[in-house]
Every structure is written in C-alpha cells, then in structure tokens.
Design a binder for these strands. Structure first.
Lengths: 313, 313
DNA sequence: AAGGATTTTCTGTCCTAGACACTATTAGGA
DNA sequence: TCCTAATAGTGTCTAGGACAGAAAATCCTT
C-alpha cells in the first residue's frame, strides 16, 4: 500500500478527470507528442499530475469550440491566456425587457452565494407564479448559464450549483400542483447520455399545469426500458428532453430506434435546445419547439384522437 | 439516409444499450464466439437486434453476480429460466416491526401504479415527519429497492420511477426547512461515476434538520471542481455519498486524490452502502456508517474545533 | 469438519499501429 | 455573396496478444 499519495495516475483516471476518451489520449500522444506519459513496470501509461492539469484545461477549451491541434501544442501559459480571452468576449445579455433577474442570478453564481441565489430563485418563483417562472425566467436562464459555462465564465461547480437549486425550485412548484388525469397520458424522461434534468422538470411542470397525467422517470433511461414503461403505464405520449450536450446524429439514431420499439399509437414528443437548429422533424417524431407550445400540442393531440380514435382503453 | 429502420446496430449502440464496454464485447466474441456480429462494408461489427437482446439479458444477469462464461454459452431460453429463478429466491423482507409501508411500496412499483406510489410516499412522509421518514423508511426502502432490482424483480424503469418519486418527496421535505447557519459548513455531492441522488438528498435533509449550512452540488462533480468549490464556499466538510454501484477500489483512489487536493483543515465525510463491508476508514476520511450518526458526528466536529481550532474564519 | 491460506481459472482492460469515416475549414465557381 | 468541392483535421474502429486482479477451487491447519 502506498504511503504517499501518487502524483501519477493511469489512463482510466485521466479519462474520468478530463472527459477525454482513452482512445483520444493515445492518438494525441502518437500524433502530437502530447501528453507524454511515463510507463509503469507493466508498460502502462502513467500521467504526471501536471499533464493531467493541462489536459483538463485543454478539454474545457475544446468545449468552447477551439480545435485540438493548436491547443495541444500550446504551452500552459498560452492556454491560460486563451481561457482568459474567451471569457473577455462575454456576449452582452440580450436586451430583454427585464433582465435584472438574469443578472442577479449570474452575479450570485459568480459570488458562490448559495443562500442568496436560493432566495432569489424562490422569490422569483413566488413573484411570477410557476408558469411564468418557467417560460420567462427558468428556460432563458438555463440557456444563459449554459452559455456562460461554455464561455468559461462559470466553473463546473457553479453550473452544478445552479442546476441543483433550480431543480429544487421547480420541484417545489410541481409539488403544489394537484395531480391531474386528463389525456394524453405522458411518460417523461431523457435518453442515455442526456443527463440534464431541468428540461424534463420544466416540461413536467408545464404538463402538470395543464392537468395532464404525467409520469417522470428522471434521466438516462435505456431505450428498451422506455418502451417497456410506456406499455406498462399505458402512455399515449413519450416526452423526451434534449440538451445541446448530445450530438444530433446520436439523438436521431436513438429516436429512430425508440420509434421502432413503440407501437404507432404512442407518439414521441422531443423538445429542448438540441432542436433549435433543426429544420424539420425526424419521421414519426413531433418536435416541441418551445415549452410555450405545450398547451397547443395537447389541444392538437386531443383533436387528432377525438376525430380518429386509434386506441380503445 | 435509410428508409427502413435498420435492425442491425453498431458496437457503440450496443455498448449504450447493454452497458457492456466495446472491449468486453470484442473479447467475448474472440473468446466465447458470442456475440457473432456481421460486418458492414467497412469491416465494422454490426449486431442483429436478436443478439443485442440476448446481450442485454446477459448484462442484467451479470449484475446479479452470475459469471459470464456460462451466461454467454447459454441459450435464450436458459437465460430466461435463470432470470426467473433468481426472481423466485426473493429474500423474505426482514421481519421488522412495521413492514407494511415497505410492502406497499414494492407492490405499487410492481403494479406501475405511479399515482398510488406517489400518494403512499407523501402520506408516509407526513405521518412520520421528515427525520423518521428518512431513517425508518427511505433509507431501508432504498436498500430493498436496490436489492429487488439486482434480483431482477424490478425493471430499470421501475427503479427510475421509485428514485424520481422518492427524490420528489425528499426535496419537498427539505424545502420546508428554514436554512440554518450552524457549523460546520458542509459541501455535498458525489464523485464521478456515482449517479445515485438519493444518498445526497437524505444526508442533505439530516444536516439541514440540524440547522447546518449545507450546499449541494448534485451528483458526479469532478474531483478538481469539488476541491475548488470547497475553497470558494468556505466549506469545513465535504460530504460524499457512495452507493454499491461504484467499485471500492475506484472510490478509494478518488478519495485519496481528493484528500490530496483539499487543505487538511477541510474534512471529508463519506457515507452510503458502499462502506457497509468496509472495516476501517481510509486515511484522512471519516466514514459515516449510518445517517443516524450525523448529529453525533456534528457534535464531535464541534468538539474537535472547539478545543483545537485549526482555522480562523 | 470448519476456517484460512494458496493456487488456479476466469475475465476485463491495456497495449500497438494502421485504416477510415466523419466534420470543419478552406478554396473555387456561379 | 452564397453555395459547392477539395483538403485537412480528428476521433473511432480493428487485430490479437499480454497481463493484472477478482473469483473459485484446492489444500492445509486447527
């Protein structure tokens, strides 16, 4: 057993700490000469802490759209400079009617002011009411926070803190709604790889506010299990939330897969930021372009089923 | 673009759907002759849907402690038989004083009765009060549900549903507590790879009930970011929850890593099912053997800091 | 005979190095 | 100026071998 904490770690640890896959780490080493791990007595890669730190920095700059070749070649100082630069070009917040709640949120996040942020969210919820809180505040705020994160203005821990507190508020709001039983019956979740809860929660709230019967499975449900749950719960609609973290291609493949496993009478509704740039809906899928459109979609669903009832329950 | 939904999928998809790593899939093919994918025109593996289904079944039997060699060789029928067998040996619930709430929960989960389960959890919370709800119901219930899942009695979607509803109740409970400001200041989260929220939430509630200042970052915070957040939030204690999903060895390595990145004045408290079989605490870490012990641990912390104040705030 | 230590079997991860699909960028043409 | 074609750039896939670490089986001791 080691007495001193080892400053050198294996490739799995680096993968976990940086988010760069083992394959990527090996191919960078071969191609660019960095990272340059030592080897342990078994010939396995062993990365010094310093290189892991640089890789973490590179990984986070990659998230901002920079390319690997220059980043990997750059020195630690250059990387820090680039990081600072990308923070400097902070886009001015959209000159919305009342941007104060947004700025307050970002400010309190910047200050790591948990108590202040919590009370700010709570007050905003009470002031606006759940529906307006979601449509006018939570949804655009999520975009702004995601944006600030990808620009490097916010750290991972700040983004986590925001998600946690916002989730708390949304659940508080949902908890006050008396559960409805109107059609359609909706099963909500996200596909594997999509771990953002907030989209599901906002949709849940909007649906519950319409009195719809709504079952949420949280995040990352395997496709086969979604299909099974939809059958067992007698769902009319499977609602899925997609953030921009997922690749469009992967999402389409999974949706096609799910579509094939569900009976045609069960609709699939897909929403979230991923579809912002999508031009047309994938076959057999309904895109919910905005949370605001949920009541309209529900009305359309009822009209469809009313005139052409496909299933008898 | 394909017109028909392809019944054959690539190795990445199989990895996502079954949870078996690409490496494992390849080595099984080489060693046991199963799976036996066809190849596309580029020589890449392409798995028929039937084999993916069998792999999924195998993967879930693996979670129950069965070994790969026999499973991979077995026919689909044998696998189903094994699945049924492992469900049959359902351990009798511990003859606790009042096991009715546990049985009701499992029954409603089995029936996919979302509304009934939700009201059952809510009523139990109101009846017992938050603290007793957690100690006497939620914590042992989590174990039972995890158990039932690993025996195959519950499907993935049922386990997800349970987590989601229990999470909802816990957050409702936490939301009613007026936030405190007592020492120590605790930062709560889980390490990468640990995605179970409930442990963090139960700890959060227990700490908040003691009036402790408590910041939660949700799940899966990278180690470096935990250390950063602890500094910025001025945390005295970093509290981490571990389910049995994580391997003990991985957890120990990550804890050692985190310990090295935190100043010695910041304590690390680790709790959760993973430590049930651990005999002694890792160096520099405090094991919280049970949620019940939290008040005691808080008292001890205050005694330590009271007699030997290490930090000046 | 039961418990504990040792050996053997099993199983997943890591290795190298090449190929290639896919995406982003640049160059060319309408 | 916008759209299309060529060109880098980049990550994932493949092969079979090696081996560390976990589980199971055996042996030995009490």
């Amino acid at each position: 057993m080691n007495i001193t904490a080892s400053p050198e770690v294996g490739i799995s640890t680096v993968e976990r700490e940086t988010g760069l896959s083992k394959d990527t780490l090996r191919v960078w080493e071969r191609r660019y000469g960095f990272p340059e791990p030592r080897r342990n007595r078994h010939g396995e890669r062993v990365y010094p802490a310093e290189q892991v730190g640089k890789l973490r920095l590179i990984s986070r700059l990659l998230d901002r759209g920079l390319r690997p070749r220059q980043l990997v070649a750059a020195s630690l100082e250059e990387l820090m400079a680039r990081m600072a630069a990308s923070q400097a070009v902070a886009a001015p917040p959209g000159a919305a009617a009342d941007s104060a709640p947004f700025e307050t949120t970002l400010q309190r996040l910047a200050d790591y002011d948990e108590a202040g942020l919590r009370s700010h969210l709570s007050l905003t919820l009470q002031r606006l009411g759940l529906l307006r809180f979601i449509l006018e505040f939570a949804a655009p705020m999520n975009v702004q926070v995601g944006d600030a994160w990808s620009r490097g203005v916010l750290a991972v821990s700040q983004e986590h803190l925001y998600s946690e507190l916002m989730q708390h508020q949304l659940r508080q709001g949902i908890g006050t709604i008396y559960p409805g039983a109107r059609t359609p019956s909706v099963l909500l979740t996200t596909l594997p790889g999509e771990e953002h809860q907030l989209g599901v929660l906002m949709a849940h709230a909007c649906l519950a506010l319409e009195g719809v019967r709504c079952v949420s499975l949280g995040v990352q449900t395997p496709i086969w299990d979604i299909a099974q749950a939809a059958r067992r719960h007698g769902a009319d609609v499977v609602g899925l939330s997609f953030s921009e973290a997922l690749r469009l291609k992967t999402a389409l493949a999974m949706l096609q897969d799910l579509r094939a496993q569900l009976p045609p009478s069960v609709e699939i509704w897909a929403g979230g930021g991923l579809w912002a740039h999508a031009h047309h809906a994938p076959p057999g899928i309904r895109l919910i372009s905005h949370l605001e459109r949920i009541p309209h979609e529900l009305a359309e669903f009822r009209a469809r089923r009313g005139t052409a009832p496909t299933v008898a329950v």
